[in-house]
Nucleic acid binder design. Structure first.
Lengths: 351, 351
DNA sequence: GTGAAAGCGCTAACAA
DNA sequence: TTGTTAGCGCTTTCAC
């Protein structure tokens, strides 16, 4: 059964018929092909007819011919994490500049991720892929590499792909921990992300570097591995508290984890920032909505999405480059969740 | 310049050649065409060859032939609003059941919205559209209707489209305001959304209905029109405070607005819920992260996305129905942001 | 049970 | 300056 709605659309042939020229001429005029010359009058009539008939090229036909879908796939692990909207916006803007569309896919489970990777690329639905997901198997990535598929990792690093764009997580972590050290904290805990992810490792690394530079000892009992979600942040914080070891500050691997930690601490009767300071990673409206508002390290998320997309587009255009960009953090945003360490020589603000 | 990567993909012809049959036979077998009989041995060899060559049908070619892109467009005004992930998840799940993909587009400005509407549909990039955006012009909607394009509005109502799926916002608002009235509040303010949007109007309506049912007078001075963002919630709350009229409770049009309101109140020295109770609309992790955790009305967001997509798919299949579903609220989730009105006969909890 | 052929709407090499 | 033609990869009717 033929669908009326979809078969009614204006085609190149309709325009050509109305003007009395060939389809190819219409195509050339509409594409503004510079290599071909058309009589000014013909061009005008074609343009007018196209507008009148509300012609829009069928992207399926065009894509089939040109072997391009003019679509980019963007894989996100979890839309609820407030860092992604920024990345997405950057990607969309970059894509739009080239008349590409972004197919956002939200792959929360592993099997689906693989299906997407294979499916989207192999079926020609997308010309390239942006992977912002942290958990993806290296085997899958390696495979896409074998197929020479244009793939860029966003905020994740792995060998053997078209490349990656990451923020300098270690530098960001140092910013956070330096800030705490400057406030006089000496027992600084770290709620880390899953340590099989590159991002989490780099932040842990920065944490250790900063400790060293500030003359503080690294104590593995102060590091609790959790995840990237609020849930996991809650649990991580509970485990940390259960150990009953002293600390006066926390560097959380990201925003949801910081939020979860704050909840647990408050329920346990701690006051933020009087008893404990917290620094989060990444900025988002959520950080301001928390009580107290969260001090965070700000990273160029929009920029990351934008540049990753630009790079992917270059890859699609046939560039042989391997992209490896590391964007520096944008700085620390001091809000209400950090204060001088209890008993430190600095006066406690507001008292 | 031909792109090697994209021209290398396995085609039906490759499989056919390997097996020694015609492309059409391969197509029939792989589509599992029930109307056609194939020798069991041939079928097995085709299946094996397809797997060996990692054949995946080119969706552009397939779509061109079948006049379907097998893609649904989903327009979202603002990814930062925490209600959308749920809707999106519902839509994706429903789409996946039919092997459709969801092209998520994030249309924050009007002109782009229109471009998207025209573009996606006319270029055949999507077979139908889910509009979750509140601001879209009725003229645009009317136009898509003229084109008989399959369009479903999600969480928004307008005449002349394929239909809409909304939650019962008025009932939800009544739940919220009834709750406050039950706690003894008599001066209940409402931070409304933009009153040119259907959603905001319906919530205001429910607010008024509940007041009436609870024997409370409607006082327009207690209603402040704001927007749907935290920013606007902040400003709305400031304007409400500036009026210096008494109130002991607030019903906020959504979550970001409730969060903004809470911030302003706290800065102004009010205690929540001791001095003022707040109820938000929609539930999301953010509600639990606030201090105190926000009492909210929970609505079936996932369900809404899911059912809207199902309905859209039916429209695409050629159904002539006009979808008009109104989903009832899932209930009120009582958290820490609401308590008995100051001076009411109920004992204040925890004291 | 399987193949041949047409055609979806577009672009581009080649002709005229 | 414009038209003719072939073909992208697929599905499907019709023939054998």
């Amino acid at each position: 059964m033929e669908d009326k709605r979809l078969s009614r659309r204006t085609t190149l042939r309709d325009v050509a018929r109305l003007v009395g020229v060939d389809r190819s001429t219409v195509s050339r005029v509409l594409r503004a092909d510079p290599a071909i010359s058309v009589r000014e009058e013909t061009r005008a009539r074609i343009l007018a007819a196209a507008r009148q008939l509300e012609y829009a090229p069928n992207s399926l036909a065009r894509g089939l011919k040109l072997r391009h879908s003019f679509t980019l796939g963007l894989l996100i692990p979890n839309l609820a994490n407030p860092v992604f909207p920024e990345i997405i916006k950057g990607a969309e803007d970059a894509a739009r500049e080239r008349d590409y569309l972004v197919l956002l896919t939200h792959a929360d489970d592993q099997s689906f991720e693989e299906r997407v990777l294979r499916g989207l690329l192999q079926q020609g639905r997308v010309d390239g892929l942006l992977l912002a997901t942290a958990q993806i198997q290296d085997t899958v990535i390696a495979e896409t590499r074998v197929n020479h598929a244009p793939v860029i990792l966003v905020n994740r690093r792995a060998d053997g792909t078209g490349g990656y764009i990451i923020t300098d997580d270690a530098a960001g972590a140092r910013l956070a921990v330096d800030h705490l050290a400057r406030l006089g904290h000496r027992r600084i805990a770290h709620l880390a992300g899953p340590l099989f992810t590159d991002t989490a490792l780099r932040r842990l690394q920065g944490y250790r570097q900063s400790l060293r530079q500030n003359g503080l000892d690294y104590d593995s009992a102060l590091v609790e591995e959790s995840g990237f979600t609020m849930e996991e942040g809650l649990q991580g914080m509970q485990r940390l508290l259960a150990r009953s070891i002293p600390f006066t500050a926390i560097f959380a691997v990201n925003l949801p984890v910081a939020a979860g930690a704050m909840l647990v601490l408050r329920e346990a009767g701690w006051r933020v920032p009087d008893d404990v300071s917290i620094v989060g990673f990444h900025d988002a409206p959520l950080a301001q909505m928390m009580t107290p508002p969260l001090t965070v390290v700000k990273l160029p998320l929009y920029e990351m999405g934008y540049r990753a997309t630009k790079a992917l587009l270059r890859l699609i255009d046939g560039a042989a480059e391997t992209v490896q960009e590391i964007l520096p953090p944008l700085g620390l945003i001091e809000r209400g969740s950090t204060a001088a360490a209890p008993g430190a020589d600095r006066t406690r603000p507001g008292i």
